[in-house]
Amino acid sequence: MASHCGRTLRTIHVTKDVGLVMGQGHRSFSSGGKAKKGSKGGAASDAPKASVLSKEVKSSTVVGANILKDGTDPKILEDSEYPDWLWHLLDKKPPLSELQRKNIETLPYEHLKRFVKLDNRARIKENNADKAKN
């Protein structure tokens, strides 16, 4: 059956008027550029390039952090020149289960704030799960 439809489609001739109605020319897909004859898919261009920066520059600047056209990469400062809160960003925060085991009245403000947020989130998830079951 498929070969019969294929033969039927091959016999249809498109006239010049139909081509104008459907649009000028035709569309085709390409790989973005013409490959050189005999090349193997651009393996040489995909290889990592050797770094031009010296070790001294790499150790004193944050390479790649510049987002401005006319700017330069920022210099790495001494630890004492950064704010204190920066060094605590990656500290582990207690999970909800641990906060629930502790006395709420003795929790520091930061932990209490986290407890309220996580408890609200858990109650919302529980309510949503109950509604989905019904």
Rank of each mutant, 00 (worst) to 15 (best):
D73A: 05
V62Q: 03
L107I: 00
N134E: 10
K125Y: 10
S30P: 00
T15R: 05
K133Y: 14
K58I: 07
V62P: 00
K58Q: 07
N120T: 06
P108I: 08
N66I: 07
S45V: 03
V21R: 09
P108A: 07
D17L: 11
G33I: 05
E56S: 04
L77W: 15
N120P: 01
S59D: 15
Y109K: 11
F115G: 00
K102M: 12
R7P: 00
K36N: 02
D84P: 08
A47T: 06
G23K: 04
G64F: 03
K16Q: 15
V62M: 12
W87S: 13
E110V: 05
N134G: 11
T15V: 05
N128A: 14
D70H: 12
G33D: 07
A47L: 13
A50N: 01
D119S: 04
L77P: 03
C5A: 06
T8V: 09
H111L: 03
T72C: 09
H88P: 00
H26Y: 12
D119R: 02
V63F: 07
L90S: 04
S51F: 02
L68G: 13
S28W: 10
R101K: 14
S54P: 01
K69C: 04
T72Y: 13
N134M: 11
S80F: 14
R101A: 12
D17T: 08
K55N: 00
L96N: 04
N127M: 08
H111I: 00
K55W: 03
G23T: 02
S30L: 03
S80L: 06
G23C: 06
V57Y: 11
K69D: 08
F29M: 06
D79L: 15
A122F: 15
R10L: 08
G71R: 11
I104W: 11
L90C: 04
L77E: 12
F29G: 01
Q24C: 14
A44T: 03
K92P: 02
K93Q: 14
V18G: 01
G32R: 01
S60Q: 10
H26S: 06
T15L: 09
N134Y: 14
L90K: 08
V52D: 01
D84K: 15
N134I: 09
K113P: 00
V63R: 02
S3L: 11
I67Y: 12
V21G: 04
D119I: 00
Y109G: 00
T106C: 07
K133N: 13
G38R: 01
D79E: 15
A122S: 05
D130E: 10
E126F: 05
A122H: 11
F29I: 05
D70K: 12
G38K: 06
V62E: 10
G33Y: 11
S97C: 12
